[in-house]
Amino acid sequence: MDGGGRNLGPLSGAGPAGDRGVLARLSGLSRPLLDRLARRSFPSRRLRGSIPIAQRLPRLLGPLGIASAFGTLALTGFVASGRYEAFIAENGRPLDILARLAGFGVERVTISGISRLYEHEVLDAAGIDARSSVVFLDVREARERLMQVPLIASVSVRKIYPNEILITQVEREPAALWQRNGELSVIAADGTVIDEMRDDRYAALPLVVGENANLRLKDYLGLIEAAGPLAERVKAGTYVSGRRWTLKLDGVDIRLPETGAQEALARLVRLERNNRLLEKDIIAIDLRMPDRVVVRLTEEAAAARLESQKKKPKAKGTDT
């Protein structure tokens, strides 16, 4: 009994009788009212975390992740095995391959100002070959690589779309060959080494030998000029002890003084004109003393001269 004298009965029962009692009391309520009561008594609390992860992720994400993982492993193995480097060496970089397929491969390279370098030397230095593409060629890097070639004084690299590269260069002028410690180098007029002697393209250049001979190249060229008609016969000049020159003429050493070398050469020119001195059996002419000329005979000529002196009759003496 409640305060109003009504018997409500149990709201819940332990068995079917209890359930029937509750249903009997609620059966008189309208359906909309029942729905509102249900929502107030049992509010919806569907949390995001309660949704299975398989329903929240895109359906293809799982297969794509697996494929990506296998692709990464395959690429790592491809690179680690060295096959990637071999592929690049044979076909070029992937971006260059795509650019070539799109019609931007390097089909022509125009080199302006080339004189003593060979075309393949310029292309190798610039890093340009059939695997390159105009689109992805780094002209700044190509120029820096070309500037490392000693014979190149200045250079520019331009792209001409779709298929051409233009290289404009200025080469240093080689003036002579310099031999030191058995090695030959090509030098400019100021003595700067600009190339190595690798073939016969520089064979006609003057040759200087010895320590710091490259820095005295101007003096040596002046001696060749002073030699006049003998200049073509000068094969090389050796800078001796950092003080004087010895010239090599057709196998004959011409030893010049430390000072007055050009005047000494003028004396040699006169001797050759009047006495044909260089045609005799000699291996050296010493011009270091201003008042005399000292010659050194070949071994055969020296032996013959000694033998001839032995055969000369001795002068008769007087008895005392």
Rank of each mutant, 00 (worst) to 15 (best):
R83D: 08
Q262R: 14
E85M: 10
A69C: 09
A14S: 10
A231V: 00
S44R: 14
L101Q: 09
I167H: 03
R158A: 05
D129W: 01
I224Q: 11
S115A: 15
F136G: 03
V193H: 05
L166R: 06
T318N: 14
I283C: 14
Q169A: 07
G13I: 04
S27F: 11
D281A: 15
A54M: 08
E299S: 07
D129K: 10
S12P: 08
I187R: 07
L146A: 03
R267S: 09
L23I: 06
F42G: 09
G13W: 00
L29R: 12
R40D: 10
D35Y: 13
A86V: 10
E85Y: 14
T259P: 01
L137V: 06
E307P: 11
A102E: 01
D319P: 14
R46P: 14
I194V: 07
G210R: 12
E90G: 10
D199M: 12
I283Y: 09
L287S: 00
T72M: 14
P229T: 04
K316Y: 03
A14P: 10
N274W: 00
L249A: 02
T320N: 13
I160A: 05
G103A: 02
A67R: 13
R158H: 03
G77Q: 07
A236T: 06
I111W: 03
V157G: 12
F70W: 14
F87I: 10
I114D: 01
S132V: 13
T168W: 02
I283N: 11
R25T: 01
V149Y: 00
T110K: 04
L75P: 05
R273S: 02
V240H: 02
G228A: 04
T318S: 15
V109L: 02
I283W: 11
R36M: 00
D19G: 02
L287C: 01
E85H: 10
R158V: 05
L33T: 10
R59V: 13
A226D: 04
T72G: 09
A14N: 08
L64Y: 12
L37K: 04
S27K: 13
V22A: 14
V157Y: 02
D319C: 15
T298A: 02
P229F: 12
G210H: 12
M147C: 06
H120V: 02
